[in-house]
Design a protein around this nucleic acid. Sequence first.
DNA 1: CTTGTAAACTAACAAGTGTTAGTTTGTTTC
DNA 2: GAAACAAACTAACACTTGTTAGTTTACAAG
Lengths: 189, 189
Amino acid sequence: MKQETRKEEIVRVAAKLFKEKGYSAVTMRDLAKAMGIKAASLYNHINSKQDILNAIIISLAEDFTEGMSMIQSTNDSCINKLKKIIELHVKISSQNIYGMASLNNDWMHLEGKLSYYQKLRTDYEEDFRAILKDGIISGEIVDAKPDVMLFSILTTLRSLYIWIPKKEDLDLEDLSNTLNQILIKGINK
Amino acid sequence: MKQETRKEEIVRVAAKLFKEKGYSAVTMRDLAKAMGIKAASLYNHINSKQDILNAIIISLAEDFTEGMSMIQSTNDSCINKLKKIIELHVKISSQNIYGMASLNNDWMHLEGKLSYYQKLRTDYEEDFRAILKDGIISGEIVDAKPDVMLFSILTTLRSLYIWIPKKEDLDLEDLSNTLNQILIKGINK
DNA sequence: CTTGTAAACTAACAAGTGTTAGTTTGTTTC
DNA sequence: GAAACAAACTAACACTTGTTAGTTTACAAG
């Protein structure tokens, strides 16, 4: 187990605060208090408030990009690729609940790396949509609007960070399977 | 067509700004600039920044509560009730895109009416869950975890405000139908 | 013992925050 | 024309914001 640096600890605590109130509403003094130090002391470890947000969001966004590229490189069926995407979201979200909140709600406050983030996000969505379209063409997936499918599935997956913490003793594999069933097969009997 | 009061205009413009940057990041000077007046002049029409947020969120939350209670009072099948819930979300969201963003992202900054809002939200979710459970018991709906179903469907519906504006010449009835198909019947062929 | 380093501190700054007080301007009502 | 009102204005307030500068403390390495 790698030891957490002080900077990583600050980023972790910041993410937790950002989840509760959002980036703009959390002050450096709030963060310092949560760390048990004074605001000025934070700057021994981080360069700016912006830096913290960058650290949270960019690394997560890159995790998703990497995961998608792994999935794309397989020869799986589209339905199986979707299953793997669901597992990817469950895994990353459960490992970084607080960060996912920033990723979803505070990305617009990125200053230096906003456009980089937006490119990662757009590319991810396009890759996702391509898988859906392939599935429609091959007949694996029903011929409905891929945009609406993408929106519906991705929105659900992106919001896992809200939902996972509400469930105690949650079995992640079980959650993936249930999501897979509901998102793919629907709820109709 | 009822004439919009100055206060309503301020609330409407504020909601637009809140959607882009979030409640905390929008200053009264930002809002004033968007209105073409000075910040102090806003206070001829509103009591506080908080008041604006309240006006946006509470009225929307009450719209949903009202809609749910209409749907509950019918003798429709569960699947039909779900269809009506989808239509309710499409209707309210499309009529108030900006307000829906605040409802989703800025509710935690409510000060006076936070607990009232939370009650409305919780009650809505419970009513929704009850419909799903009824459907499972009556055999209309597949016997999967109702919590996960609720999460998946409601998350999608709550995020419509992000997605609707991206589509030009969007037919709302068409959107409702497509959502109904994807959410209820899934994407599997 | 000296030196180096990590990590905290106090004090302060310039800019920005929501808001209030008091005033001015233009339009409508009698 | 006087009175009333809606809606803007200027000026200022007390407080909070992110951040910097300079200093102190504790501990480890030579």
